[in-house]
Design a protein around this nucleic acid. Structure first.
Length: 423
RNA sequence: GGAGAGGUGCCUGAGUGGCCGAAAGGGCCGGUUUGCUAAACCGUUAUACGGACUUAAAUCUGUAUCGAGGGUUCGAAUCCCUCCCUCUCCGCCA
């Protein structure tokens, strides 16, 4: 949620920034500002009257104490009159506050100055491309064929147990999941991230705080009996750890990492885009989250990008880093880098990580604050990124490392796997 | 799921209708004292949204907030209702 203060100070600038994100309904900004004005007037009116009610009530107390019943009764009449007057004001105030809030949450975060113009994925800025695309043999096949050949993931039985998009990992396939998760977590904790294992379902408040609600409830699995949502990413429970927190400046930065399965309903597309491991309803992911001082967040973003990049290098996968254009970035983000790995048999780039700076957007909704050196409360900046999402990593590992008699595993994983090759 | 107890400020904890944004102690921060440290003493110690003043900060001031939401009352931390959470015992259970 944008800070009201920012809108008040420079609405024109806000509109320009929103345009970069291709947010079309700029009238929301004006609606917010006029509601804000109305709210202020109403509150002033309400406060003044309520102050009278309060002081008169005190007088009644004192009169009663002295036994001056008649005077007290007269004052009661006064208060009653005031309260009758106050009633419509307070009703209207509540309405206006609600409307203001409703409008405010419609506005996406403002893009940073670094965000390239553009509306679609083709406009994303290719910041870096590295690693070597493997030269595959002529008979190389996509990962879904390899999976079947080596019997490491059973989609059919997963579909039988639950439904399509719920894979059943098996044998070395299951072990590979476990190895990747352990390796990623170890890599993250070595960089100073504290490991968490959070709840996999969250309540409404948590889903609202990270922005899944009110708009994206359709993307989450929902437990109607208990009013819980299955998490679409560890970002939700992990970022909520510090909801409503008042931190000390010295507490920052707070670095957290967590592995969780992620559940996504996404109606999505069909065909090759969703074949095999490309898109699933349940998948595994290790997430990193940081809460930082506002002055440090872009520095932090860079360090997180470097951090994630290190993983791809260690896994020996060809990758590229994209800076997302205004139209392609998420609602809450101010600046996002996507990581894609090249999956050689599909000959496609697959998104495996997305690292974003949300600045105060999430923190404002969640009220994650710290006291600065003057003792004044300030919103922290939040950042997060995947480090990493497993399925597409697995797809690329399988495709890129296939040889005639199996699939070679990268050296960093071998200690976790206990084998060097899937055969 | 059943029975009971409870949720108060950074912490402990008092507070059963007005003088309570809240005693007391501890902690923290600032000051005095001291060669230094400790101790002692004094003071400060929430957040949000408004208003006044101001270039701004500081300051002053109003309203709200004692788990959440409603209600009773001139007046609620205090009484009533609903919900959430924690603890103890019982039941069920990995």
């Amino acid at each position: 949620m944008l800070q009201l203060q920012v809108l008040r100070q420079n609405p024109q600038w806000v509109k320009e920034k929103l345009a970069v994100k291709h947010f079309s309904d700029l009238s929301v900004v004006d609606a917010v500002l006029s509601l804000d004005e109305e709210r202020k007037k109403l509150q002033l009116d309400f406060d003044n009257n309520q102050a009278k009610v309060n002081s008169t009530s005190k007088e009644i107390g004192m009169l009663m104490g002295k036994g001056q019943k008649e005077e007290a009764e007269a004052k009661k009449q006064e208060v009653a009159a005031l309260k009758t007057m106050l009633e419509p004001i307070s009703v209207r105030l509540a309405e206006v506050e609600k409307q203001l809030q409703d409008e405010l949450v419609k506005l996406p975060n403002l893009p940073s100055d670094l965000v390239p113009a553009g509306k679609h994925a083709v406009d994303n800025l290719n910041v870096k491309e590295a690693g070597t695309k493997p030269a595959l043999a002529a008979d190389a096949v996509p990962h879904w064929d390899l999976i079947r050949k080596y019997d490491i993931i059973d989609f059919e039985t997963g579909a039988k147990i639950t439904g399509s998009g719920f894979p059943l990992y098996k044998g070395k396939g299951a072990k590979l999941q476990r190895a990747l998760i352990s390796y990623f977590l170890d890599y993250n904790t070595a960089a100073g991230y504290t490991e968490y294992l959070p709840p996999l379902m969250v309540n409404e408040m948590s889903a609202y705080s990270t922005g899944q609600l009110p708009d994206k409830e359709g993307q989450m699995y929902y437990m109607a009996a208990d009013n819980y949502y299955m998490i679409p990413t560890a970002e939700v429970p992990v970022t909520n750890i510090y909801r409503d927190a008042m931190l000390k400046e010295a507490d920052l930065p707070i670095k957290m990492t967590a592995y969780t399965p992620c559940f996504r309903r996404e109606a999505g597309s069909f065909g090759a885009d969703v074949r095999g491991l490309n898109r699933l309803h349940q998948f595994d992911k290790v997430e990193i989250v940081q809460l930082v001082h506002p002055d440090k967040s872009y520095e932090t973003l860079d360090s997180m990008v470097t951090h994630v990049e290190g993983l791809l290098q260690a896994l020996e996968l060809p990758y590229r880093i994209l800076r997302l254009c205004g139209g392609d970035m998420s609602f809450a983000s101010a600046l996002t880098y996507d990581f894609e790995v090249y999956s050689a048999a599909q000959q496609k780039w697959l998104e495996v990580s997305s690292v974003s700076n949300f600045e105060t957007f999430q923190a404002n909704r969640m009220k994650v604050r710290f006291k600065d050196e003057k003792g004044k409360p300030q919103l922290a900046h939040t950042l997060n990124g995947s480090s990493m999402a497993l399925p597409r990593i697995v797809a690329a590992l399988l495709e890129n490392n296939q040889v005639t008699d199996g699939i070679n595993m990268p050296a960093v994983l071998q200690p976790y796997l206990g084998f060097a090759k899937i055969q």
